[in-house]
């Protein structure tokens, strides 16, 4: 198998379309040839790097991370490793829903400090929120118990920034939770939200929904003065996303993100967003609902050794 054929098979393997016999042949090509194994590893790492790069570009567009690193127009990791380590970033931009790690001792407590998660109350303000317990953000509306995204908006602290996505936020005070946190430091904050793209099937442009969770230390009332430039100061964060092209068989998508809660976390920023992947574009038929915040304490995380 020459390199061209090998790359072609690698693309089909990534796409999950190789039959067991074809996988066996693909393996045979690698088994006795370290160069082919290296080619495969490099292809996988490059693919993951491309995945990371496009995602970071999307976030960089909406958050203007470049101002935090003026010498380098593109940053691969937008949060400092030290900050990430302090908070153990869990849920890095994952798009699929993961079940909680099962543990007989785990407890899950729905947090009602996130208010109006079902959008039953028609209260929504504009701009980044200045107080906890209130939805506020870009142009959106609460209608029929759902949050309807209406129009992308730019950040008030970045007058030169483009309107990329429609972002809606809520600040949640975490200080009252401290007594409930696991002393082992493995309490997990889990945010989930339902998103619906009710446009006709295969409508372009595609739209990406985001569900993001940032944990900060300090005063929640002052964050609006520095958002989004203050994102790198988050002590932990997680984000999930999904891209849709109108209504499909999967219907409503649930995004879930998780963060271990560092002891110094004072408040959380909940961010839900819809971003059209071609601009300008109207945000019609895009909604969010059922935003939930849960505290999971797992005093004894299980480790399962699987023998194969």
């Amino acid at each position: 198998m020459n390199d061209t054929d090998f790359f072609d098979q690698a693309m089909r393997y990534q796409d999950g379309v190789l039959t067991p016999d074809e996988i066996a042949a693909f393996e045979a090509a690698m088994r006795d040839d370290p160069a082919k194994r290296q080619l495969f590893a490099d292809t996988q790492v490059r693919s993951m790097a491309l995945h990371d790069r496009f995602r970071q570009e999307a976030f960089q567009s909406s958050c203007d991370f470049s101002r935090t690193s003026p010498k380098k127009p593109f940053t691969w990791i937008t949060r400092p490793i030290a900050a990430m380590a302090a908070g153990l970033v869990i849920g890095l931009f994952s798009a699929s829903v993961v079940g909680a790690i099962s543990s007989p001792k785990a407890t899950t407590e729905r947090l009602f400090s996130l208010l109006n998660g079902s959008f039953d109350e028609n209260r929504l303000e504009r701009g980044f929120p200045r107080q906890t317990g209130l939805w506020s953000g870009d142009e959106a509306a609460i209608h029929d118990g759902q949050l309807r995204f209406i129009s992308p908006g730019s950040d008030s602290n970045d007058p030169t920034g483009r309107a990329i996505s429609c972002d809606v936020f809520q600040l949640v005070d975490l200080r009252p939770l401290r007594h409930a946190l696991s002393p082992e430091g493995d309490s997990v904050l889990e945010l989930s939200a339902d998103f619906l793209d009710a446009r006709a099937p295969n409508t372009k442009p595609s739209v990406s929904f985001f569900c993001q969770l940032y944990l900060f230390a300090g005063d929640p009332g002052s964050l609006h003065q520095t958002w989004p430039q203050s994102i790198p100061a988050a002590i932990a964060s997680g984000s999930a996303e999904v891209t849709t092209l109108g209504l499909d068989d999967k219907g409503t998508r649930t995004l879930t993100v998780k963060c271990l809660i560092p002891a110094q976390a004072d408040f959380a920023v909940i961010q839900i967003a819809a971003r059209p992947n071609l601009r300008p574009a109207k945000l019609e038929g895009l909604s969010a609902d059922n935003v939930r915040l849960s505290l999971k304490t797992q005093p004894s995380l299980p480790v399962r050794i699987v023998q194969r």
């Binding site: 796409d15 693919s47 869990i90 890095l92 699929s96 790690i101 998780k258 797992q298």
Partner: peptide, 23 residues
């Protein structure tokens, strides 16, 4: 992702591995 063939799912696996490793 060499197992999952899905980069998002691979990130989910990474999350779980982190939590287990700390534990």
């Amino acid at each position: 992702a060499s197992v999952t063939r899905d980069f998002h799912l691979a990130e989910d696996v990474f999350q779980e591995v982190c939590v287990k490793a700390v534990a």
